[in-house]
């Protein structure tokens, strides 16, 4: 992995650890949860076996790309969110550094490994008789999980309903605690900062993704 100047040594190690765990989870899910038989079961009503196996072969051939893109995705996500928080700091008159905020964002990002871990535990060890649709709509502790039959929802609704979950709250708390530590302010003050600043980024992101899924989706 190439070292990037804006990452200090400790930030780089945290980033490396985050990417490694995410890649491990991803690899486990793709090899042990989304198995060949799960995909065949899902696609066989519409596609012939010959075409399904070709599709699976192509998926395996390009799986390396998934792992290569993960660190790039995390890097850009963390940089963008850090810049967003820095803009918020200007409005709230908080004195903050890029490196400090970047570390907080990196640490908080570990929260997002929990849903993947839950998916591995749930379908890997508890409910092993699942279908591909179950994996697609797996969103524990989210608004989507309140729907008995999420498949019947319009596809553009799935992402926002999946995204509004308990982990977002945990993420906001993790960001607030991190900011509290680096800025030596009390938790209520940093929560009052994080809620509107991160919340606004979430609203913009959800609107953007929903816009894309409505306009580009079939």
């Amino acid at each position: 992995m190439v070292k990037v100047p804006i990452l200090s040594n400790s930030n780089f190690l945290v980033f490396l650890l985050l990417c490694l765990i995410a890649i491990l989870f991803n690899a486990f899910i793709h090899s042990n949860i989304v198995t060949e038989s799960v995909l065949v079961d899902y696609l066989q009503n519409q596609m012939s076996y010959e075409r399904i196996y070709k599709l699976i072969q192509a998926k395996e051939k390009w799986s390396w790309l998934n792992y290569t893109l993960l660190p790039i995705f995390y890097f850009f996500k963390c940089v963008l969110l850090t810049l967003w928080l820095l803009c918020g700091a200007i409005i709230f008159d908080f004195k903050a550094s890029f490196k400090g905020f970047f570390k907080v964002v990196l640490m908080a990002e570990f929260v997002w490994l929990i849903p993947s871990l839950l998916l591995i535990i749930w379908y890997g060890f508890i409910d092993t008789g699942y279908s591909y649709s179950d994996i697609q709509y797996f969103a524990p502790l989210s608004l989507l999980s309140l729907f008995e039959n999420p498949e019947s929802l319009d596809s553009w609704l799935v992402y926002p309903l999946k995204s509004l979950n308990i982990f977002e709250l945990a993420y906001i708390i993790a960001l607030s605690v991190g900011i509290m530590k680096i800025m030596k302010k009390d938790f209520n003050k940093t929560l009052e900062f994080t809620l509107p600043v991160y919340g606004s980024s979430l609203v913009v992101w959800l609107l953007f993704i929903t816009f894309l899924s409505i306009n580009l989706g079939s």
Partner: peptide, 8 residues
């Protein structure tokens, strides 16, 4: 965002 919402 208003444009995204309108277009959607």
């Amino acid at each position: 965002c208003v444009w995204f919402a309108y277009k959607s």
